Simulated scan of single mutants.
Amino acid sequence: MLTLSFVTGTEPGKWFTRFRERTRHGGLEAIDTDDALGELLAGNAALALTRLPDARIDDRFHVVELYRETPGVAFPKDYFLAAADGAVRPEELTGEIINWEPPASGEVDAGAVRDALQIVAANVGVVIAPRPLLKVLSKKLVEHREYAGSQATHIALVWKQDNDSGAIQDFVGIARGRTINSSRQVAPKRSAREKTLAKQARRDANGGGKGRSVKKKPAPKPRKRR
């Protein structure tokens, strides 16, 4: 059994399905949380799908970056920014109340973003955060657009170097796009019952062995008369 924590704003469901279908590691338990790395540090998860940068990550961990997140800005519905053509520029927010934005370190506090969006929903100010996170947390009274004035964040898989395993390596491979036909992907081993059922299915597909064509022996050539 592999236990994985994934940070709010990610949607790893397709990887979960592929992991369960392709491997025999006892399944996967997923923890949806605002602090995926915190679950890993607390010993509640062996692998974390988390957001970078994060000052808690050091040389004790393996880190595999998967993709970049686009910065975004959230604002009340029917706000003037809703008519923006393309990414919102920093100068367009001059004089606006910013309820939350990433600090200089670039670290994102998903819980703080969640709370700040409640203020935006009350028609007050804006929030600057990764757009995938805004997409997940925004309600009907909040809209969001791409923002051109903030550094990008990244989503990565993180795990402790002293806690590596075949299950973790298989999940990392799947997340990185490894297919079932890859030489590095471990194909699921079938049980004796699964093999028997597969053999029976092939037999039934061939009509249970009936009606098979029989190869005829060629007729003997006639002897020449002397």
Rank of each mutant, 00 (worst) to 15 (best):
Y79Q: 12
V73F: 10
A83G: 13
A46C: 02
F75Q: 05
L52M: 12
V64G: 01
D58V: 06
T70N: 10
D34Y: 08
V88N: 07
A36V: 03
D78M: 15
G38T: 06
D78H: 15
L49S: 10
D32P: 04
G72R: 12
L28D: 00
L37G: 08
F61Y: 14
G43S: 08
L28W: 00
L66H: 04
D35K: 02
R51P: 04
G43M: 05
E65C: 09
G43E: 08
I31V: 07
A82C: 11
I31N: 05
L66M: 03
D78C: 13
A48Q: 05
E69W: 14
L28Q: 01
N44M: 08
G43R: 04
F75H: 09
A30Q: 09
A30R: 04
V73M: 11
D54E: 07
A82M: 12
Y79D: 15
A42I: 06
E39I: 00
A46K: 05
A83I: 11
D58E: 08
R56L: 10
A83V: 09
V88D: 11
L37W: 06
E29M: 09
I57S: 04
F61M: 03
E39G: 00
A55G: 05
N44K: 12
G38M: 03
E69G: 08
P71N: 04
V64I: 12
L41T: 09
D85L: 15
T70A: 12
V63A: 09
D59R: 10
D59E: 13
L47Y: 02
A36I: 07
P90K: 13
R56A: 14
R56W: 06
A55T: 10
D34S: 12
R68F: 05
G43H: 08
L47H: 00
L40M: 02
L47A: 01
L66G: 07
T50D: 10
Y79H: 15
E91D: 15
A45N: 05
L81Q: 02
R68C: 07
I57Y: 02
G38C: 04
F61V: 00
P53Y: 09
A46W: 00
A83P: 01
